[in-house]
Design a binder for these strands. Structure first.
Lengths: 241, 241
DNA sequence: TAAATAGTGTCTCTAAGACATTATTTG
DNA sequence: CAAATAATGTCTTAGAGACACTATTTA
């Protein structure tokens, strides 16, 4: 701990980090939740919550560092996509004290993926998104945070390549389109979709085909797997006069 | 203060709120800065900084509340546009301790506007944006925060009505276009601009004209002065093959 | 050959880009 | 009248929407 001058001697809020980790699997958008511990003194025992925990001032270099650590702890994968969602802080969200959480937003491809509950959670599980939330009551203000995360995800998917982060490393254009449609909840037009994705140079073909009971499909991979692509237009802009 | 259970007894970061307040004036985009106090123990004495300060756990209901309070303290205006920009937290940004700031992003029209320095600042002043920053060294990591704010502003201006919040209550379409051009740093095509703004039902005419040494211009006001409009396309998408 | 999905082509439509033209005021 | 800016019109173009059509595999 560093030296403190006298005037810093006032109450400070609790500081935590929470993660909204999304994936697409079994034709649904899913979010990763963990079960709150039931030890005495723990708030919201037994309820499901976004994975997260306290910032460890002595070990975390910075907030994003802390978020990445928790992401790996929970999923075992280093997500390609992690962005800050926002912070929620007020006097009542945690019954223990004035608290602030820094919510992060992550997209992962659900490939091997062995879920680990980790220190502060009894169990971890994928919950399908229904409407703007999940079919279970969430701890803290996590329903609100999840709602904001979904809003952000859906609005960004309209003009970015975000779904490409929720798909296996090699994928067909139809599979990518399907990921878009699941997140957006509406069908997209095939030929326009392909033209756009190829024109954006978002993907490049690999020398492999996906076999099936029909014509095999060209497999692609992301050209730049780090940063998303921003399109100049949204999909299907409603021409509502 | 609420009761604390024993396991909450670990070091907590300092928690602050900072504001990037922008306006358009004298053909330039400007940001509001305050001068750091020079009392002993204060970090970065005499340097310019984004206005902000510690979260007051006993008086602030929540973070946004705290941001609004500081905004009014500094500018005397309740901005129509305030959004969260993000949070910056690490061990080194404040020499006093591990600290987290919650940065907010605000747009105001520079009408009457009497700047007030307020408690923790010797002086407050508008600085023109040059490139991605201002022509003075900033305290803390505020140069980075300002850079992120500018990035967010410029990218959002491509597909939203944000500049409408930096223009007086009544304005001509040319004035609005001018605000766009100042933020974006490039000229827009007049006829396309007008068609888009009118088609979006963003503005409505008031029964007044702006007089000048030429043909007078129709004055408009925002139709919904609370929420910005999102366009389905960006301005001038670069057709770079 | 039928079934199934991959992939392309055609025609229309919306809105932007470029730029010219008309409109309305003051001096 | 000239000067100046407001406001609109014309023609072209990029890319989406709708939907048909062709291609290539397995059973």
């Amino acid at each position: 701990m560093k030296k403190k001058t006298k005037d810093l001697d006032f109450p400070r809020p609790l500081t935590t980090v929470d993660l909204a980790i999304f994936t697409v699997a079994e034709d649904a958008l899913k979010v990763l939740l963990v079960e709150r511990p039931t030890e005495p003194g723990e708030p919201f025992p037994g309820l499901w919550a976004l994975p997260g925990g306290f910032v460890d001032v002595d070990h975390d270099m910075d907030l994003e560092d802390c978020a990445r650590r928790k992401l790996v702890e929970k999923t075992g994968v280093a997500s390609l996509y992690l962005e800050q969602l926002g912070s929620w802080g007020n006097a009542t969200r945690d019954p223990r004290d004035w608290s602030v959480t820094h919510a992060y937003f992550s997209l992962i491809a659900r490939e091997p993926l062995k879920l680990r509950a980790g220190a502060n959670a009894a169990d971890a599980r994928w919950f399908p998104i229904v409407g703007n939330t999940v079919r279970t009551r969430l701890a803290f203000d996590h329903a609100e945070i999840l709602g904001t995360a979904l809003q952000r995800l859906r609005s960004k998917v309209e003009y970015t390549s975000l779904p490409a982060f929720m798909v296996p490393k090699e994928f067909t254009l139809t599979e990518l389109q399907h990921a878009y449609e699941i997140v957006l909840g509406r069908p997209l037009e095939k030929s326009a979709f392909r033209t756009r994705v190829l024109a954006a140079k978002l993907v490049e073909p690999v020398n492999k085909l996906r076999q099936g009971p029909n014509r095999p499909a060209q497999l692609f991979r992301l050209k730049n797997s780090r940063t998303p692509v921003y399109f100049a237009r949204t999909f299907n802009p409603r021409y509502d006069k």
